[in-house]
Design a protein around this nucleic acid. Sequence first.
DNA 1: CGACGTATTGATTAGGCTCAAATCCTGTGG
DNA 2: CCACAGGATTTGAGCCTAATCAATACGTCG
Lengths: 249, 249
Amino acid sequence: MTVQQDIHSSSIPDLCLSCAARHRGVCGALDPDHLTRLAKVSSRHQVEPGVELIGLGEAVDSYTNVLSGVVKLTSSLSDGRQQIVGLHFAPNFLGRLFKVKSPFHAETATAVLLCSFPRTVFERMIKVSPELERRLLKQTLNELDAARECMVTLGRKTALERVASFLLLIARNIDSSVDPAAKSACFDLPLTRADISDFLGLTNETVSRQLTRLRLDGVIRIENNRHVSVDSMSRLERRCGGRHATTFE
Amino acid sequence: MTVQQDIHSSSIPDLCLSCAARHRGVCGALDPDHLTRLAKVSSRHQVEPGVELIGLGEAVDSYTNVLSGVVKLTSSLSDGRQQIVGLHFAPNFLGRLFKVKSPFHAETATAVLLCSFPRTVFERMIKVSPELERRLLKQTLNELDAARECMVTLGRKTALERVASFLLLIARNIDSSVDPAAKSACFDLPLTRADISDFLGLTNETVSRQLTRLRLDGVIRIENNRHVSVDSMSRLERRCGGRHATTFE
DNA sequence: CGACGTATTGATTAGGCTCAAATCCTGTGG
DNA sequence: CCACAGGATTTGAGCCTAATCAATACGTCG
């Protein structure tokens, strides 16, 4: 049986048709009707690397999906010491729900494509779509797990283990098309050495030294400072400082 | 106008009447009816310090409210290095929603009072109560902010700053009755020196040294190894390694 | 009081930081 | 196409903070 659907609520907006956020991001929770309403007030932006998106404590009146590229979340101490506290890969949702002011600073690490929409519209949509709220809760829980994993890295791993863990993290997140269980990988680092050191709680000199060490050990190859090849992922994993063996859900 | 309410759905269960989780925890989102249904399948337990609640990767079939005391979330590397990745104070909700197996290990740090309920019942309740889901989302977002704050401490602060930050964290969380903006504070440390070092990514010797340093500097007083007095909170704050000045929401 | 676990203090070592210099990449203009 | 400028990265030397190893003191509980 074919039903003639209301034209206003049945079709997916052009903007969203091939969008990653609709396939694997929060927009996947929205029906065509909601999607259309959100798309009407959304805007896309291409942004250069190193651009501040959210200033610390600054009032933010929009939320954003990262459609491509990487955004870093940072926090700084008053004397300039800096720490990256989160990385947002596509198609992550970006923004601190229920707070007008972000507790952290957000900055593009690479060139990124963003899709932004007004905070008020989105928050109203959360209220009427339990599915959307559910998805936001799941993403937040995953971010929390990731942040806690980082705490282990920052608190207990050696410099070499931190750098190896970082490479593994990037390999698993940068290109979602790649099989997470692949035996080998190659990718462009989305962060400079300085950024990597701010993520790992090290200095750029130490990051550099550990990268050369991994290179001399044959674990990775590096071309043009940015492109990394990993022949054996399991070999890299062995440099990460093993978690207690367990199978996760 | 007074309305005669259905006796089955109007009254708050005795168990929940004076419960902190109903006042400031997730149960506050539930109406008397839902509360009654949950209370029927809930059970309270008093647990000693140092008891494992959730084994790493172990299947968990219940969720828990921490009604008093402190629970620590930990992760270990295979060679024994350990990191505390989260502390749950009353009346926090405890448990990894939507995952059967917890990615972290949970253990009581102090004596605690717990209120547990079956995972299935609670998850069904989330589905019908957007208010409950909202509250879980808010708690998760707060935990995420806290974890990221910890990342700054672990990645960029000195040993002294870490210990001072930890004392501040405890002072602000241990006794919810105390004004968070109070000028002074005193409290019992819920963690041993070894636990504190696992939280701060240090050794117990270093923690001990920094505590004596703060004591000799007159920032804190310590009695019986556990009881800490802070005369001037702002004095303690100055030892924490300042965040870039901003006002938060 | 004695014993055990917890915490403090001391001496030494080592991993990563700092400061400094050299090298490599990228992009630009002649 | 090549030379050059500027930033990013690598490499080196020395130092410093926190770890390690070891011994002593404290506190609690039987």
